[in-house]
Amino acid sequence: MNLSYQEKSIWGSMVATIGVFGWYFANTPVFRNDGLTRSGRLGHLVSAVVLLVIIQIVYQAVVALKWKAEKKDERDIQIEGKAFRNAYFLLATGALAAMPAVVIVGEFHQQGEPHLISPYLAIDILLFFLVAAEIAKSATQLFYYRRGL
């Protein structure tokens, strides 16, 4: 398959995002209160973000060195626009899903059973949909690069 510079860049970004946040969510109980302190939970998240940034920098540098970097043209921008639209729907869904999560966590606290639910539920839901939006954006771009606009 003959991939363009943009496609190579997007593939790397998407695989890195899936890998790193796959690891994060696999090791982070979203619903259950695992007793992790706030700093412990923050440590997981910061580790994931730092790892993703490092992988992205190395990969994008390798791609730029191996294949000549190309400036985005009107087609790239149009495809990106369609991709952002799909990502927006997912992010909006995440924002809506996080709202009841805040209420649910509050209810558990009021019932005196905060140990049964993760206090970070709303944050994890938002983060999940943010990552899903990023993946959807990349997948949409790759789809339109192959199929055409």
Binding site: S4, K71, E74, D76, R147, G148, L149
Partner: peptide, 18 residues
């Protein structure tokens, strides 16, 4: 002033340019 991929897409009628 576009990428080679865009020319390919136009030639294959997969993209209508501005």
């Amino acid at each position: 002033g576009v990428t080679r991929q865009t020319i390919i897409a136009i030639e294959q009628n997969k993209y209508s340019p501005s």
